[in-house]
Amino acid sequence: MGTRKSVAVLTATEKSNFVAAVKALKAQSSGRNYDWFVRTHMTYFNAVNGHNYAHMSPSFLPWHRQYLLLLENALKAINPAVDLPYWNWTANRSTTGAPFTSDFMGGNGADGNGPVLSGPFAGSTRWRINVSATSSTSLRRAMTLRGSLPTGSDVDTVLGVSTYDVSPWGSSSGSGMRNRMEGGLSPGLHGRVHNWIGGHMAQVDSPNDPVFFLHHCNIDRLWSAWQNRWGYGADRYLPGGGVANVVDVDEVLEPFGVTASSTLDHRGSYTYA
């Protein structure tokens, strides 16, 4: 079982192991390589088979939990010592501090809206963008131009909402924890961080930036904190059943082939430090 740690406490070896494993996954020519994860996120941004599996729906959190677990297991197959780290943006808020250091994720884009200039993912020879809505083959960031980083108070607000989600189970849900966490409802934790980083992170192909996984690991950590407070049971996920075009608790999350209920209690697979 793995322990997911904050990017701020990773050792130099842990950072280099993570970067090396991510690059090795990128270098794989077939199967569930890194670009498979990018392509899958693009495909599942929209409804598939009439279901919004990944976004603007209750299954936003279970879908990404399973997606991250698949990536983490792929990295562990390369190096068993690797665990997915999380970026706690309420504590680490600098564009030059963790995780945006030259030995880990690298920094901002050139002129504030161009290719990343520093770190192991700077330039197309180190990290080539193969699948994207835009033509750059180099990773881009445009940090702080749009969006904002949530505060601890924002997080407290979201974690204090006891109901997981409410009808109509989408972007227009006027209450519930999920839409506040995802971003359709204030204070909206998830989407604004994508915008704050900008570049590829603002796009449908946002997993092209490895920071995507550190950000979503933090979202998953916050959901875990909510579960610690309100419960891990299947009754805490809504809807419980009978809602068309929405992943009910016992429906399968595609393309993973597991039910939403099977993702709820992660403590047998990993925990957060």
Binding site: A133, S172, S173, G174, S175, G183, G184, H194, N195, Q203
Partner: peptide, 25 residues
């Protein structure tokens, strides 16, 4: 095109648009 709540705990919504380049904005 999506619908978003005008405020927490409100059933009223407004219409907004997203693109593949501004997917969270």
């Amino acid at each position: 095109q999506i619908e978003l709540p005008v405020a927490p705990d409100s059933a009223a919504t407004y219409t907004a648009v997203l693109s593949t380049l501004n997917h969270f904005d």
